[in-house]
Design a protein around this nucleic acid. Structure first.
Length: 901
DNA sequence: GATCCGACAGTGC
DNA sequence: GCACTGTCGGATC
């Protein structure tokens, strides 16, 4: 498959020397990367310059000027033919221009001259195996504009191959921002209509040799007050004084050529009025980042998601204020006053979409208030109230530009609604977008508290898991957390923003609300980070886990939460869970209502908490390079080995990870103890596998463990096994199951690193694991894989506040386990746990066995009757907390005794 | 020495 | 193309 870049340049070449007739269609197929065999075949069948590639392309060549009519005819033919036989792309070519239609997307048919072929070429991507990225209608203009701008940007880069330093890149970014501003101003009426385009077209040579010089002087002109201008400003005399820092900075101009000029004029043909600044900025970032080009704007934060942050932290309250004000003039004036004193601070602002959306929403509230007052006056909301930190230079430019564009559009709206005119030029104030590393700079320096102003901190910082961070990110983590937060190396990168926002809030009172990966409120992160965050602060509102939606094709990328915090008060807190909204007294760090307990992992069971629970171990890791067949094999492979070497039997054992446990996957492994190595090596297929494993482990580039394990190429990294039986617990498993499915396996069974095992454990513990209440505990205090529950010996098992049990109780529980086991078996062999525990068709007997177990377990936790699962969890956490407090005071008195002794 | 995680990853309808 | 559900190995304590 060709890359988009390759396709564009192929199309450029094709447009430069187009073949005639049917050959054009074939050449176009080749340019986008259609299969060669297909092209060859079609060449034979093409007739009168027309051919059909089944279900993919109908092509016709016509006389000059006939493309559009031909396409209309082809479309009609296509629509009357059976659906299954319709080609996806319809295309007519008349030697000068093309007309094309994508039947799947069915937007406007494309009609362009050959010179625009590559700019619009994405319509042909499906022929080369790329699915077309289809923006929603309201984003079409932004995507198109971004595509055009990208081509211009690339052309400029092509003629400036030596521009590689950071200063050069900065100069190029500024240049692009200025050009964009001119293109936009040309169309929306900031400039006289098309004055910039005309000036470029009329005052520069076609070969582009004087374009750079022209633009440099035009930019200078726009930065010069009318009274200071020299008299002989010809070509650009109609260009206005812009100022506002956009044209201020003196940066070198890139060299430009004829191709740049052509592409710039192509850009000028677009309708820039339709640009939506809160999307456009994110898309623009793809302009400079060629890597991201394929996913043009796919990862921008959607306005809907941004509103999930801005609403509860600020806008909902403002709206309520406005409503309360009604027609009361004093209150309305107060409201307007307040609007002019709110600062929005986004310490991870990117191209500014949070700031831009906040600005637009505030302006819209202002207009509503002015309408109530029946007063027309200029906006009191200044761009200076919008403040951001961003590390990427171009994103900074995009954010400033986006804010200006937003301001212009809001000013227009104000004029339309209330007849209040605002002079847009010269630009007065800019958004306060500071370039820098938010992890390193002092936020108080960037958004300094001012009396009379209220500040709200918002944003969607980067996420990066603790194990996958870059060196730079690790350094950032160190610089922020060293000597302040223990175990911070286990936190996600996003934790930096939470930590610094909490500090900022403590110092300024400004509330904050941030988007985060949901792991920040789960499992291991909670005891590391949250004690610090909650110091002097509380959660004001939160969105529990929701799937992030963006424009990417496969939408399943990340599951997020939003957390808003501030100085404590006695107002109720708002907890969002999907469509459900609840007002509660308190939101805890697990985003559970009314529970603020934090559960810290413990490395041992049998402690003061899980008093009578035995040790649960992490499984064994094959460390064989994923798909290599070294220590692991299918049953078939195992049978083949056994067929020839029956004495291999003692070394071949079934292995269980989550999949094997849940789906009944029949996987075997080689399990050799240190004293058996020679014996195992005597068996040819085992020996071969050990050699393969040695290769895998030694050739693996990084990773201490891989290298270390090269010394024992017959062994798993861990050596944990049972003497009689093992209780096996899946490591990660679907959240859709009401009970956690665990199992008891015979002593031969090996537990892989994707499961946990209680080796030779007392069976009644399988009943504990199978109980609803333990499943709830797991869901609350354990980590998650997106929304799936994830088991952990330290976080879930060793912390479970199970009261001490009598032998009679244990026997009773064991009895329950065997009931469950029996019910599973009676449901039929060959039915996997995944199947059995699907709530829709869980066998009645199995359900009953679990319910009976649950009834017994509840009596263990006391005589009270639980009203709900939330009630159960609340009780569990109370129990947990009580034990921890007792433990602490016991330790305290012990320490005292020690000190006095 | 023992994990807990993934702006995920792979499968199967 | 979407719904469903868990791999694998290492950086970090």
């Amino acid at each position: 498959m060709l890359t988009p870049g390759e396709i564009y340049s192929n199309l450029d070449a094709l447009a430069a020397s187009p073949p005639e007739g049917g050959e054009f269609g074939l050449a176009l197929m080749e340019a986008v990367g259609a299969p060669r065999a297909t092209i060859t075949k079609l060449r034979e069948t093409a007739k009168d310059g027309a051919f059909t590639w089944a279900r993919m392309l109908r092509f016709e060549a016509t006389a000059p000027g006939g493309a559009e009519i031909a396409l209309a005819r082809i479309r009609e033919e296509s629509e009357t033919s059976p659906k299954s036989r319709r080609p996806r792309i319809l295309l007519a070519f008349d030697g000068e221009s093309i007309a094309a239609f994508d039947t799947k997307i069915a937007d406007e048919p494309l009609r362009v001259g050959l010179d625009m072929l590559s700019l619009e070429g994405d319509i042909f991507f499906p022929l080369g195996g790329h699915e077309r990225y289809v923006p929603a209608k309201e984003k079409l203009a932004d995507v198109r504009a971004t595509r055009f701008i990208s081509r211009f940007h690339d052309a400029v880069r092509d003629v400036n191959p030596t521009w590689s330093t950071e200063a050069d890149r900065h100069a190029l970014n500024i240049f692009m921002a200025r050009v964009l501003f001119c293109l936009f101003s040309d169309d929306v009426g900031i400039f006289e209509k098309d004055v910039f385009e005309k000036a470029v077209r009329q005052s520069t040579k076609v070969d582009g040799s004087d374009l750079a010089d022209f633009l440099e002087r035009a930019f200078q002109h726009m930065n010069t007050r009318p009274e200071d201008r020299p008299s002989e400003t010809k070509g650009w005399s109609k260009l206005q004084y812009v100022n506002g820092s956009l044209f201020e900075e003196a940066v070198p101009m890139p060299t430009l050529d004829g191709r740049c000029r052509k592409l710039l004029l192509d850009c000028a043909k677009l309708n820039w009025k339709l640009i939506n600044p809160d999307i456009f900025g994110s898309m623009l970032q793809a302009v400079v980042d060629v890597e991201k080009r394929g996913e043009l704007g796919m990862h921008y934060t959607s306005p809907a998601n941004i509103m999930k942050v801005l609403g509860p932290i600020l806008l909902d309250e403002l709206e309520a204020d406005l409503e309360r004000a009604g027609k009361n003039k004093v209150k309305l004036r107060d409201f307007l006053q307040r609007l002019s004193r709110i600062r929005i601070f986004d310490p991870a602002c990117g191209s500014g979409n949070f700031l831009i959306l906040a600005y637009k929403e505030m302006r819209s509230l202002e207009i509503k208030a002015l309408r109530q007052l029946a007063e027309a006056r200029m906006s009191g909301i200044q761009l200076e109230q919008f403040c951001g930190i961003e590390i990427d230079d171009f994103a900074c430019e995009a954010a400033r530009l986006g804010l200006w564009i937003a301001k212009y559009q809001c000013d227009q709206q104000l004029e339309l609604d209330l007849g209040q005119r605002t002079d847009f030029l010269p630009l007065q104030k800019a958004g306060v977008i500071k370039r820098g590393n938010a992890a390193a700079v002092d936020w108080l320096d960037i958004c300094t508290p001012q009396t009379g102003m209220e500040t709200v901190v918002v944003g969607n910082p980067q996420f990066k898991g603790s194990k996958t961070q870059s060196k730079l990110q690790r350094n950032d983590m160190k610089s922020v957390f060293a000597n302040r937060v223990k175990n911070a190396g286990d936190l996600d990168y996003v934790a930096i923003w939470f930590f610094k926002a909490a500090e900022y809030t403590r110092k300024t009172g400004a509330p904050f609300a941030l988007v985060s990966t949901n792991s920040i409120v789960q499992g291991a992160s909670v005891p590391i980070l949250w004690p610090h965050l909650l110091e002097g602060l509380e959660i004001k509102f939160a969105h529990r886990s929701f799937k992030w939606s963006n424009l990417a094709k496969s939408n399943a990328t990340v599951t997020c939460v939003i957390v808003g915090m501030g100085i404590p008060d006695n107002k109720s807190k708002r907890l969002f869970d999907g469509d459900i909204v609840r007002d509660v007294d308190l939101i805890g760090p697990y985003l559970a209502p009314n529970v603020k307990t934090i559960v810290t992992g413990r490395t041992r069971a049998k402690g003061p908490i899980a008093k009578c629970l035995e040790t649960m171990m992490f499984g064994n890791m094959a460390l064989d390079g994923r798909n290599e067949k070294c220590l692991r094999m299918s049953r078939k492979e195992r049978d083949e080995i056994l067929g020839e070497y029956p004495n291999a039997d003692k070394f071949l054992r079934p292995i269980f990870g989550s999949e094997e446990l849940m789906d009944g996957k029949d996987i075997w492994c080689i399990w050799v103890r240190a004293d058996q190595v020679d014996e195992a090596n005597a068996i040819e297929p085992l020996k071969n596998r050990f050699e393969d494993l040695l290769r895998v482990r030694t050739s693996h580039d990084a990773g201490d463990d891989m290298q270390k394990a090269s010394a024992t190429p017959w062994a798993f990294r861990e050596q944990n096994e049972a003497n009689s039986h093992t209780i096996i617990v899946p490591g990660a498993t679907s959240e859709d199951r009401y009970w956690l499915p665990v199992d008891v396996k015979e002593k031969e069974s090996i537990v892989s690193n994707l499961a946990f095992g209680i080796f030779d454990g007392e069976i009644w513990q399988a009943a504990i694991l199978s109980s609803r209440i333990h499943r709830l505990w797991l869901e609350t205090v354990g980590g998650k894989l997106e929304n799936r529950v994830r088991y952990s010996n330290t976080l879930v098992w060793n912390t479970f506040p199970l009261p001490p049990l009598s032998d009679r109780r244990k026997a009773e529980l064991e009895e329950h386990w065997w009931e469950i086991d029996l019910a599973r078996k009676e449901a039929g062999f060959g039915r996997s746990l995944a199947e059995l525990y699907n709530l829709k068709n869980i066998p009645r007997a199995l359900r009953l066995a679990h319910e009976e177990l649950d009834a017994t377990i509840e009596t263990i936790f006391g005589s009270r009757r639980y009203r709900s699962d939330a009630d159960r969890i609340e009780h569990m956490l109370q129990l947990y907390e009580r034990i921890v407090v007792e433990e602490a005071s016991a330790n305290g008195s012990k320490a005292k005794k020690k000190a006095t002794a």
